[in-house]
């Protein structure tokens, strides 16, 4: 039976030496029976408290389902300077868009990504594959049996999140409708000829936006709409 402090040191060593996030299962496997009910979670907490208390420049974080030692963000500029010229570029807006779509609709085909973005996405997807942020996860049953793509563990690591639940949620269409002054009367309004009666239509329905309140869980994740 190992001492508590010994277990703590071993956990620290394992996470320190790992070249990818260490999962709880991986840690447990190393200890076999010697853990004897010691909670690894609380051991990690203790380590983090010690680091914090003694002013260490790193901490243990949970990412992609495992523990990983990372430097504190305060020291970013120093490390950046050291790695000068070796840091990778950020993803392009196009790549982020494609990733957002794949993350929420996976598994998804290239054509479906392109349909939502309204623009050919072959190049972007090839690039994401090479960066290992997505992988081929199968084929669709439909016409032509197109390849399907899903996000990877590297994707979670890249964005520093533990699982897909931690991604910002896309707002519901209904919510956007509401915001866009969408009304039940939309059909009436739209049935009118566009040019002349436009203004009349706009003026008439301005205040009726409360008509439908979409009941949506997870509203807390909402952020400001960039269009406002």
């Amino acid at each position: 039976m190992m001492e508590h402090s010994e277990i703590k040191s071993v956990v620290e060593a394992l996470i320190f030496a790992a070249d990818q996030p260490v999962t709880l299962a991986m840690l447990k496997k190393q200890f076999a029976e010697e853990l004897n009910g010691t909670s690894l979670d609380s051991i990690i907490d203790e380590l983090n408290e010690e680091y914090q208390g003694s002013g260490r420049a790193f901490s243990i974080t949970m990412v992609a389902g495992g523990y990983q030692m990372i430097t504190r963000p305060e020291y970013a500029s120093w490390i950046k300077q050291m790695y000068h010229g070796r840091t990778k570029n950020k993803l392009s807006q196009a790549a982020l868009e494609a990733l957002a779509i794949i993350a929420f609709k996976q598994p998804i085909s290239k054509a479906e990504v392109a349909a939502i973005r309204g623009v050919n996405s072959d190049g972007v997807i090839k690039n994401l594959l090479e960066k290992r942020l997505i992988s081929i996860s199968g084929r669709a049953e439909g016409l032509g049996r197109p390849l399907l793509y899903s996000t990877t563990r590297e994707f979670l690591e890249y964005f520093g999140i533990n699982d897909l639940q931690e991604l910002p949620k896309p707002r519901e269409i209904e919510e956007l409708f509401k915001e866009g002054k969408f009304k039940d009367e939309i059909i009436e309004v739209l049935a009118e000829t566009p040019e002349d009666e436009e203004q009349a239509a706009e003026a008439s329905g301005q205040d009726e936006t409360q008509a439908q309140q979409p009941e949506k869980a997870g509203d807390g994740d909402r952020t400001e709409n960039p269009s406002e």
């Binding site: 974080t61 963000p73 970013a76 950020k90 982020l96 957002a100 964005f159 520093g160 991604l167």
Partner: peptide, 20 residues
């Protein structure tokens, strides 16, 4: 998804400040 991608860029930026 455009909105999500903008927020993901923030996550990316935050992650780029730490080194594993």
């Amino acid at each position: 998804f455009k909105e999500v991608s903008i927020q993901m860029a923030d996550l990316e930026q935050a992650r780029r400040l730490v080194w594993p």
